[in-house]
Every structure is written in C-alpha cells, then in structure tokens.
Design a protein around this nucleic acid. Structure first.
Lengths: 149, 149
DNA sequence: CCCAAGTATATGAGAGTTCAAGTAAAATGC
DNA sequence: GCATTTTACTTGAACTCTCATATACTTGGG
C-alpha cells in the first residue's frame, strides 16, 4: 500500500532534513551567542518592530512570528522580564492584549540584526546561485500554500 | 557595512523559514500523535535500523541521526526506558558504547514508517514538481556541503 | 436580559534541547 | 613510562516548547 520514497526522493529528503537543520542551528547559535536570544524570540521582536507603533495583538503576532499562541505567551513573558516587550491591555476587547516593543527591545534587535543577516547570508544565500534562490523561493511558497491552513 | 537582504531575498528567506517550519511541525505532530515519539527519536531509530546488526557507536549515530552527542545521550536514555534501544559497552574501546536497536524498537519504527512516509509526501513531495524536487535536492546538497563540518 | 457558545490569552506540567561541566579511558609526547 | 592532551560519552541545570486546561471576556440566540 505504502508508496515508499524512491532513491531520488530519499536523497532529496535527507538533504532537506540535513540542510534545514544546519541552517536553523546556525541561526540559533549565532543569535544565542551574540544577542542572547533564540531565533524564535528574534522573529517576535522583528514582527513587532515592523508593526504600526511597534505593537500588535497577541494573536496576530503569533501568526506573523510563526508561533503558536502558547509559545508566544511564554516567550513574551520572558521578553517582558528582560524589558524588551511590554503588554498593554486592549480597551476595545478586554480579553485581548497588545505586545509592545520597548525602546530597549528595539535597541536589542537593532544591535542583533547585522550579525543575524550576516549569518543568513553565510548559511544560505552565499551558497546559492540567483537561479537557485528563485527556485527555493517558489518551492517554499508552494509548500506554504499547501500547508498553511 | 551590512549587506541587507533585498526584496527578493527577503521574500525567499521568509518563505524558507515558514515552509521548513511547517514541514517540521507536520512531521513532529504526525509522529507524536501516531507513534508517540518526536521526529528526532524516529531518526535515531531509522539510523540504527539501517546499521549492520542494527547497532552503532554513539558518536557515529549522532552524526547519522543529525544529533548533538548530548541530545543523543538523553534521547537514547529515554528510548532505553521504553525498551526500544539497549546500550552495549564496546570491548575495543572501553570509553565507547554501542546503541542497539531492540526487536521492540524495530517493531516500533516498522509500525510508524508508513504513516510517516505518507506525511512526508503530503507535506513536501506531493506539492512539488519533479523538477522542483531535483532543484531542492541540489540546493540542500550545496548547503550541506558548506555548513557540514 | 440571561445563558450557552465562542474567542483571546494565560498557565502548569511534562518533555526535549542546549550548554557547561564531569568522568573515564585512550593516545601522544618527551 | 608518566604527564598531558584528546576522545567518548554522560550528567545536571536552565530554558524552550507542546499539550491540555483554565480564565476572562464577548457574542449570539431565545
């Protein structure tokens, strides 16, 4: 019954697992070492920094930062302890919260960004030809389209 | 100084992050739900099942299963509790250990494999054209070549 | 208006991962 | 040969993530 992977698919699959893990590990290590935060936290701060007034409702932030709501809740609690994020109650819907990027938080990603971009280039873009970057973009967009809700 | 990502690179990067995370989450959820183990554990069991006599030194296993030594050590401890793996001391080098896949462990991946392959197809291969699979393979191989070791 | 159902978020426990440090045995060098 | 370094692996603590559940508020009928 099971349609097993053929040889080419096996190879592609294993290369995919290895490559994506290597990239993610490289990112996490660099950010942890140089900025004291995991990549997931960096993504949250970046999402906030791009939002109007640098604030966003928790649920929207979860989507933008590719996080589950629970994970985000825990993460924001941690970021709050460090003074990088603050929570403001939402007046229109008193169940809701805004996560707000503080000036310290903004300073933190501003400081972290150059090293991070450097690592992104080193571990991905420097390795690929422009054609490969295009191909990768399309491949990932296709995957998103299918798996995202 | 910093060479920021241009618009295309930005898009490719964000699609890459989203797509790889979606695939990994899909894998982890399916395996956790249907086989009671995370993907990392599955990879360890698979690596062992492919080894001669279904056993391997811890350090080699770490490489094959794409795990750090510490992570592997903890994971094998857990797998041992479930009776899926056993540890044998290595006679030639008494610092060393073999991780050995038990019959129960083999049964566990044999049972898990079909559902896992199904999920791999669903979340990646079914979405891509043969050309895209080839392109992805080459891209990932290039990344591995650069980042590995 | 009130109650049931739904939504937004938080919380706690359990599990996995990382990092630094620890143990033990082999290899190296003088 | 003995001290040093290296290798193989483990351990513990701190942290993050997941899953199930709880809380608080809102919404939609009747």
């Amino acid at each position: 019954m099971t349609r097993w992977l053929d040889e080419n698919e096996q190879r592609a699959w294993r290369n995919f697992l290895a490559a994506t893990q290597l990239v993610n590990e490289a990112l996490d290590r660099q950010l942890q070492r140089d900025a004291g935060m995991p990549h997931a936290y960096y993504m949250i701060l970046v999402a906030l920094s791009e939002a109007p007034e640098r604030r966003m409702r928790m649920s929207e932030l979860a989507v933008r930062a590719q996080s589950s709501q629970s994970r985000l809740s825990h993460a924001v609690a941690r970021l709050e302890e460090r003074g990088w994020v603050r929570r403001d109650r939402c007046p229109e819907d008193r169940r809701g919260n805004f996560a707000v990027l503080t000036d310290e938080g903004f300073a933190a990603i501003a400081a972290a960004a150059p090293g991070h971009v450097e690592e992104v280039r080193r571990s991905l873009f420097d390795v690929l030809t422009p054609d490969q970057v295009r191909a990768l973009d399309e491949i990932c967009a296709a995957v998103r389209n299918t798996l995202e809700r």
